[in-house]
Amino acid sequence: MRDDDLTFIEAVQRDLHTVRWAEPAELRARARRRSRRTAVAAAVAVLALTSGAAFVASRGATVPASAPAAASPSAPAWIAAEVPAEALLQPVDLRPAIARPWNEAGLGEEIRLDQMLEVCRKDQGLVTRWEQSRYSRSVAIVRERPGGVDKREGQVLAMQDLYRVPPDRADHLFDGLPALLGPCRQWRSSGPTAWRGTTITAEVVHSWQEVDRDFAGDESVLVRHTVGQARNLDTGAPLDDRTSVTAQAVVRVGDLVSVLRYGSDGSESQLRDLARVAAERMCVAANPGC
C-alpha cells in the first residue's frame, strides 16, 4: 500500500494493535510486484554491470602519455555487481525447528526504514528522500507450523533487505539519521477513528529514537519505534493499555547496507546478535571485502 493511500483512521487502528508481520502470501505478492519493476529495468542492469567499475590513478607517479595510469593498491576499483543470495541471512542463522526462506532481487530500490516514519515527516510538511541502491535482495525466513496445510499460517522469524550502493553514498544514510529521526521523537498523531461501534477522536504518540551504534560491521545503528497508549481526546480515557515497541538494525559492510527486523518474539539483544551474523555473511560480497 502506498503511503498516500494510508488514511489516518487506518494508521490509528494499526497502532492500537500488536504489530502484525506479513504472511508468506503477502511476501510472494510483494515479490511479484518487485519482479515486474526489475524486468522493466533489465536492460539497464546489463549496462551497469559492464560499466560500473571506477578506476583510481596513482598519485605522484610520472608516466608517459601513452601509458595507462596505474591503479592505486590502497584504493581498489569499485565493481558494481548484483547482491548474491549467499550474502543474505540463512535459516540456520535463526535455528528454527521448521523454516524456509523467501528471497527476491531488485534494481534501483530505495533504502526505506519505516513507512510510518515517512508519514510522520509528511504530517509536518517535511520531504523524505531515501537513499537509492544499485542492486538489492530481500529475504524473509518463515517458520511453518508442523503439519499445517495452509501456508499462510507461517510465522515470519526475521526479514532482511540488503542493498548495494555507490561507495560515496554508503555511509550517507548513517550521517543523515539524526536529521531524519529528529522531527519524530515525539509525534502526536490524532484524528477520528472507529471504536466500539462509534467514531471518536483518538491520539497516540509515536517515538523514533537511535538507541545504539557500532555493534556490527563497519557501521551499525539500532532504531527503536515506540507507539504509546492510545487515548480518547474527548474524554481523556485510555483506549488500550498496550505499548508497541519495534526495532530495526541498519548495518554497513563496505558498499553493502542491510536493514534487519526480527519477528514479534525477538528482542533488541537478539537483533544485535543477528546483525553481527548478517555482517559476517555480507563480507563475502562487499567491496572492499572483509
Rank of each mutant, 00 (worst) to 15 (best):
residue 177 L to G: 08
residue 33 R to F: 07
residue 168 D to E: 08
residue 190 S to F: 11
residue 1 M to Y: 12
residue 163 Y to L: 06
residue 32 R to T: 12
residue 156 V to P: 00
residue 237 A to N: 07
residue 157 L to C: 10
residue 30 R to I: 04
residue 3 D to H: 00
residue 101 P to Q: 01
residue 17 H to N: 08
residue 200 I to L: 14
residue 279 A to T: 05
residue 68 P to C: 08
residue 180 L to V: 04
residue 116 M to H: 09
residue 158 A to V: 15
residue 128 T to M: 02
residue 26 E to F: 10
residue 252 R to Q: 13
residue 211 V to L: 01
residue 285 A to E: 02
residue 87 A to P: 07
residue 49 L to A: 15
residue 215 F to A: 01
residue 210 E to F: 02
residue 51 S to P: 02
residue 214 D to T: 11
residue 197 G to Y: 09
residue 272 R to W: 08
residue 281 R to Y: 02
residue 179 A to F: 08
residue 88 L to H: 04
residue 222 L to N: 06
residue 113 L to D: 03
residue 209 Q to I: 04
residue 189 S to Q: 15
residue 172 H to D: 14
residue 239 L to Q: 11
residue 196 R to C: 00
residue 85 A to N: 04
residue 95 R to A: 10
residue 19 V to Q: 11
residue 50 T to G: 07
residue 284 V to Q: 12
residue 112 R to P: 01
residue 282 M to A: 06
residue 73 P to G: 05
residue 194 A to K: 15
residue 223 V to Y: 07
residue 74 S to K: 05
residue 46 V to T: 15
residue 213 R to Q: 15
residue 254 G to N: 05
residue 69 A to D: 14
residue 196 R to F: 03
residue 54 A to L: 07
residue 175 D to L: 10
residue 83 V to E: 09
residue 126 L to W: 01
residue 49 L to K: 05
residue 14 R to I: 12
residue 153 E to R: 02
residue 282 M to S: 00
residue 178 P to C: 04
residue 123 D to N: 15
residue 38 T to K: 09
residue 153 E to H: 06
residue 78 W to G: 03
residue 245 V to N: 05
residue 80 A to W: 01
residue 245 V to R: 07
residue 254 G to I: 13
residue 165 V to T: 09
residue 278 A to H: 02
residue 1 M to N: 08
residue 268 E to T: 12
residue 188 R to H: 12
residue 27 L to N: 07
residue 253 V to T: 15
residue 116 M to T: 13
residue 127 V to N: 11
residue 82 E to G: 10
residue 286 A to N: 09
residue 91 P to M: 10
residue 214 D to I: 03
residue 245 V to K: 03
residue 62 T to M: 11
residue 228 G to M: 09
residue 158 A to M: 07
residue 220 S to P: 11
residue 103 N to G: 02
residue 120 C to V: 01
residue 103 N to Q: 02
residue 238 P to K: 00
residue 177 L to H: 03
residue 11 A to D: 05
residue 102 W to D: 06
residue 279 A to W: 10
residue 126 L to K: 03
residue 97 A to T: 10
residue 235 T to I: 15
residue 5 D to H: 10
residue 248 Q to K: 12
residue 221 V to A: 15
residue 67 A to V: 11
residue 232 N to F: 03
residue 261 R to Q: 15
residue 287 N to M: 05
residue 180 L to K: 13
residue 241 D to V: 00
residue 134 R to F: 10
residue 82 E to D: 15
residue 28 R to M: 04
residue 156 V to Y: 00
residue 158 A to I: 01
